[in-house]
């Protein structure tokens, strides 16, 4: 085994990876800031959302679910369900963190999708210094992008003409491909979730469609013999 690089070196490695990710976060944040303005969020609310939530997927879910006067509770539930993916990530990460419960919980806040992937060193082990390093550039980029998007409030026409509305779903389609590569059993539940969401959107608000599609798909799959779903893992 080679000597392990110093924590400082691993942190800086993470920062290097995170700087590229920060560029992506910035563009996505611009579209979030602009989209929130279009839906009538105030500038302070838009920026504070990015500061305290710091999760593109949850914030876009909240935005989508509240659109057109959607009810608050289903919107919160949809956003939290979206972030539910951080639960298994946190569980996977747990053994790689150090210290007491509170300290571990605080370290767990550094998990965002791309950092989680960047910190993976293989065999389910994670380098916490790389994780912190990768997240550090992304947070200011996310907040700055949101603020600029909110203040500049580019007209919806411009966002539409530049195709920027594709950035968010495109990121998620690519994340989905990544997920399916690592867990092939996800194909069926992804297909069921997508199909149920598409159907429900005809009658229900976005937040309800999202919730019901996800829970429905998972419950449906839970009812199947476990051997069928767990073979691939």
């Amino acid at each position: 085994m080679q000597a392990e690089p110093s924590p400082r070196r691993r942190f800086l490695d993470g920062v290097r990876v995170g700087t590229g990710l920060a560029a992506a976060s910035f563009v996505l944040a611009l579209t979030f800031g602009a989209a929130a303005q279009e839906q009538g969020w105030s500038v302070p609310a838009t920026i504070v959302a990015s500061v305290v939530i710091f999760s593109g997927s949850a914030q876009f879910a909240l935005l989508a679910a509240l659109a057109g006067g959607g009810a608050t509770l289903p919107a919160i539930a949809a956003a939290l369900l979206i972030n539910g993916r951080f639960l298994p990530m946190g569980l996977a990460l747990g053994p790689s963190l150090t210290g007491g419960r509170m300290r571990r919980a605080l370290q767990g806040q550094a998990v965002v999708d791309a950092s989680f992937v960047a910190a993976h060193t293989g065999h389910g082990r994670f380098d916490r210094y790389r994780l912190f390093g990768a997240t550090v550039p992304q947070w200011p980029a996310w907040v700055a992008g949101t603020a600029i998007g909110a203040f500049a409030a580019p007209p919806g026409d411009l966002v539409h003409d530049l195709g920027l509305d594709v950035a968010f779903p495109a990121f998620f389609v690519l994340l989905l491909i990544g997920e399916l590569r690592s867990a092939r059993s996800g194909y069926l539940s992804a297909a069921v979730g997508a199909g149920v969401a598409a159907l429900l959107l005809w009658w229900a608000p976005a937040g309800v469609a999202l919730l019901a599609a996800t829970v429905g798909a998972l419950l449906g799959l839970r009812a199947r013999p476990l051997s069928e779903t767990s073979d691939q893992s």
């Binding site: 369900l81 779903p169 989905l176 976005a206 999202l210 779903t229």
Partner: peptide
Amino acid sequence: GILALLAPTLLAALVVVEVLGRRW
């Protein structure tokens, strides 16, 4: 096994919701 299915299911539903919107 169940937790592993959560992420792809949600991502797929989220993309559909985002692309189609209410009443498509």
